[in-house]
Design a protein around this nucleic acid. Structure first.
Length: 583
RNA sequence: GGCGGCGUAGCUCAGCUGGUCAGAGCGGGGAUCUCAUAAGUCCCAGGUCGGAGGUUCGAGUCCUCCCGCCGCCA
């Protein structure tokens, strides 16, 4: 949106016990399972217009090299040492079970009290094994410093507070909070072997997090040469032309992996002499009827399925418009359609339709024409060119918004002001990942324009002009200039709104901008003010009906008689979607 | 059990450092225009701002306690 060269990276984290077990359960090799899953994600991204410049799989060789390099660097800094890991181990499940996932029980063999896995119910053994450990608490102060810096490094506020608390509770003086970063290969094989010790594989998170360095093109072969330079380590461009996108401007993650991204990850980076990310944004999860989605409840929502039902942009719009960062949000098919129909179709889409109406544009641009000239015959290009373009002032010069509002009622001034403030409002909101806030602001402008449209009544002005033409009277210049001004202002409103919503609804907004004849190279935030619509620009779309968001509401089939309402007037029917029953 | 958060109109939520803060949207009810995708616009919510105290000239907005949810940790 801003036109900056950006690395948009995503990918799949493919190592670890869970993958190993899931693959075994299906009789697949881990890699086969990952191939399938990874492909599935990319299919979804393609389907949903989710762009990325890199998709990294942690099983790729380029990534393994980075992970190994980071490990080696941390080890050389004396931050990783061979220690012991002790924990509850379930032999049948082949996994360590966190304390929180255990429950007191009785051993079958001799009836002695023991611990059971909450998940599987299997008996647990207390196992101690050699593990490599990372001196996490060493970074307590630096982490707190990082967390305290501005602009906020962790957002939203509640997540930052949590992170600060977690780090604050770390015992800096003991090794109790040292982080286990490897597993013996006898327990876990599906991982990256630790450099210099094939009997361990790297802990999945240390492995996975370094993917960000992989995609950032950090020259890890130079990692050993990085020198610590105080609190703000810089990566020196040793060979003079090293390009690296690191540090990341944003990590967009779910709240479930905040600990890894906001505590472990910056600590690893600081340990390796690299800069921590600039910002970690943690969003909530989607619920269904207030409940977590889970396999056991079978209440998951399948995005492929929902997109097939509602359309990509209806789903995208809902996800951005109806969510907030700091808490979980509820998925609802009804909300998807209500928002689509109410805000996109009725407010935005309909405004686009009204401004492209021939009944308004032709009188505005071809005031001498008598409308009945071509009631049924197909329109020729010449015919269209005679009136389908962005209106100009009466003297033929180009409108500006400032000029247009001069000839319109005060509501136009209000709209003008809103539009002037919109870009910064949206930018601010998007910057903080407060998408709903930005979208709402856009909507207010659209709503204001609809209101202005109603107040100015361009159809009445058009009628005045048409009737004048029929009577061969001189054109009513007041009506004409107002009509043109209102249409121009509306077109500008739509252009600005479309640019603001382009990242949210790339497909639909591209269509809208095409209709508005906005050149492809004038669709960035900077063009909102720098490149207004130019009077005279052809609007070929005006020839037909312009529908960017086809409403899914159905009119009551009143004409068939059966459904006529008691009151005798057409009922304002809203399609009530079936109750959420997503599979 | 500890720590933290939340609890504002039927629903989803705005309300920053205390004084137009009692609001928006949706749903629901009513009216109206006709350019437009049966779309638009306008009017209608009398809600003890979870409860009880307290600080203050004045508190959804600060403090204490209680109730109810939720998260993390143990």
């Amino acid at each position: 949106m801003l036109g900056h060269q950006t690395v948009f990276s995503t990918g799949t984290d493919e190592h670890g016990m869970k993958i190993q077990q899931a693959a075994a359960a299906e009789g697949l090799t881990p890699l086969e399972l990952c191939d399938r899953t990874s492909t599935r994600f990319r299919e979804l991204f393609d389907l949903c217009d989710i762009g990325y410049t890199d998709f990294v799989r942690t099983t790729e060789e380029r990534h393994k090299a980075v992970a190994r390099a980071v490990w080696t660097k941390l080890a050389s800094e004396q931050l990783i040492y061979l220690g012991n890991y002790a924990g509850w181990y379930s032999v049948p499940d082949e996994t360590f079970v966190p304390e929180a996932q255990t429950v007191a029980g009785v051993r079958k063999r001799d009836g002695a009290p023991c611990k059971l896995s909450l998940e599987s119910g299997h008996e647990l053994e207390w196992v101690e094994q050699p593990n490599y450990k990372f001196k996490l608490p060493l970074f307590k102060e630096k982490l707190l410093q990082w967390l305290d810096s501005q602009p906020a490094t962790v957002a939203p506020q509640n997540r930052l507070a949590w992170t600060v608390q977690e780090v604050g509770q770390m015992k800096a003086t003991s090794d109790a909070d040292d982080l286990s970063v490897s597993r013996l290969t006898q327990y876990l094989q599906w991982g990256i072997p630790t450099p210099n010790d094939p009997s361990h594989v790297m802990y999945v998170w240390l492995d996975a997090l370094t993917n960000y360095l992989t995609v950032s093109q950090v020259p890890v072969h130079k990692l050993s040469e990085v020198k610590k330079t105080g609190a703000k380590p810089e990566f020196p461009a040793l060979d003079g032309q090293v390009f690296s996108a690191w540090p990341a401007d944003y990590h967009i993650i779910g709240k479930d992996i905040l600990k890894f991204h906001a505590i472990y990850w910056p600590a690893f980076l600081l340990g390796a002499g690299l800069a921590p990310p600039k910002r970690v944004i943690a969003h909530g999860h989607w619920t269904v009827n207030g409940q977590k989605m889970s396999k056991s409840k079978g209440n998951g929502v399948d995005p492929f399925d929902r997109v097939a039902v509602h359309g990509v942009d209806a789903v995208r719009y809902f996800l951005f418009r109806d969510s907030q960062l700091d808490s979980d949000c509820d998925y609802s098919d009804t909300r998807v359609t209500d928002l689509f129909n109410g805000e996109l179709a009725a407010a935005f889409g309909n405004l686009l339709s009204r401004v492209f109406a021939r009944a308004l544009l032709q009188p505005a641009n071809q005031p001498s024409a008598t409308l009945s000239s071509s009631p049924s015959s197909a329109q020729t290009a010449d015919d269209l060119a005679a009136w389908a373009f962005v209106p100009s002032k009466l003297d033929g010069t180009a409108w500006t918004r400032s000029d247009a509002i001069q000839v319109l009622p005060p509501i136009a001034q209000e709209l003008h002001d809103k539009l002037n403030q919109l870009p910064s409002l949206v930018h601010e909101a998007y910057t903080d990942a407060q998408f709903a806030r930005g979208i709402t602001a856009v909507l207010f402008s659209i709503q204001c324009c609809n209101r202005a449209f109603t107040i100015v009544e361009p159809w009445t002005l058009a009628k005045t002009i048409r009737e004048g033409a029929l009577k061969n009277e001189p054109v009513n210049e007041t009506a004409l200039t107002q009509l043109r001004a209102m249409l121009y202002l509306t077109l500008e409103t739509l252009r600005i709104a479309s640019l603001c919503l382009l990242p949210v609804l790339p497909r639909s907004m591209t269509a809208a901008l095409n209709h508005l004849s906005i050149p492809a190279d004038q669709r960035l935030a900077q063009h909102i003010f720098s490149s207004p619509l130019v009077s005279g620009t052809l609007l070929p779309a005006a020839g037909g009906s312009v529908v960017v968001f086809p409403s899914t509401r159905r009119a009551n089939p009143v004409t068939t008689g059966a459904a006529a309402t008691q009151s005798g007037k057409p009922a304002k029917t809203k399609q009530k979607k079936q109750k959420d029953s997503s599979s």
